[in-house]
């Protein structure tokens, strides 16, 4: 491993405060520089490791940039057809009720082609976790307009900016699923700053822990960037995300467990 190091004297095992989790494989992430997917993968792997769920986890990767998620986290995986991850997860969880089942889906997968599967599995209160990466664009196919592309935002199929009269409005699907009785915990987070990564990890960890209660679907949206698709440097993209995406997709919990439903309140913070 080629490395550069800071002051060597301090580099001792007892001083270690952060290193890549062992659940992340050694495969080099295929994502573009600065992509939020990578960060989201990493916190997810950390949580699975910290919660001791490696043996129980069955993940479902989507179609889109994160299709190869199964190359990066060392657990069992199924790769779904575009938009269908919640259908797979429904069957997996019902047939293997003791497992921790989750889907990881992008905005095109979850909020366009897979809207039906998303809403119906949340509405049935299926006991799995949905992780929703919203970067407002189709990354893998080369930057086309997504269901979550914000008004005025440019993409290769909205080259003059999303015109809501002709192209419709962005779909706030997280707000929709929060209204469904089947969802237990719904939160929107981001991973564009260190503070937000820490908050996102806290929310995601809560969702993972709630999942074991089998009280319904947990849903965590992560507002993310797409430097290549947005045609910005990663640093510019994160700034743009903060100034443009977050006003449209404000961060925070959209639905928290009702007190009488919460077996273990406050234990996860």
């Amino acid at each position: 491993m080629a490395e550069v190091t800071g002051i060597k004297d301090y580099i001792r095992p007892e001083n270690l405060v952060y290193s890549k989790t062992r659940l992340m494989t050694d495969n080099v992430l295929h994502y573009c520089p600065g992509c939020g997917h990578s960060t989201a993968h990493r916190i997810l792997a950390e949580i699975i490791d910290e919660e001791g769920l490696q043996q129980d986890a069955i993940g479902i990767s989507p179609v889109g940039c994160s299709v190869f998620l199964y190359n990066y986290i060392d657990i069992d995986w199924q790769e779904a057809a575009h938009g269908r991850a919640p259908a797979l997860a429904t069957a997996i969880k019902r047939l293997c009720p003791d497992k921790f089942v989750f889907t990881y889906q992008g905005d095109g997968d979850l909020a366009a082609i897979g809207t039906s599967e998303t809403i119906h599995s949340c509405n049935r209160g299926e006991n799995f976790l949905i992780i929703f990466i919203n970067n407002g664009i189709y990354g893998m196919t080369g930057g086309q307009m997504a269901p979550t592309t914000i008004p005025g935002m440019k993409s290769s199929t909205s080259p003059y900016g999303r015109d809501t009269v002709r192209m419709g409005f962005p779909l706030k699907i997280t707000d929709i699923v929060a209204t469904l009785p089947g969802t237990y915990y719904v939160s929107r987070q981001s991973v564009h700053t260190a503070l937000n990564v820490r908050r996102a990890k806290r929310a995601l960890k809560k969702a993972v822990q709630y999942q074991s209660l089998n009280r319904g679907t947990c849903f965590v949206e992560i507002v993310s960037n797409c430097p290549a698709g947005w045609k910005m440097t990663p640093v510019e993209a994160n700034k743009w995300l903060e100034e443009n995406m977050l006003p449209y997709y404000p961060l925070g919990d959209l639905k928290v467990p009702q007190p009488e439903k919460d077996l273990n309140p406050g234990s996860t913070d």
């Binding site: 270690l16 890549k20 080099v28 994502y31 520089p33 939020g36 997917h37 990493r42 260190a194």
Partner: peptide, 11 residues
Amino acid sequence: VVCPDGVITVY
């Protein structure tokens, strides 16, 4: 924490 590729170890 923000490094997407997890290339940094901290002491």
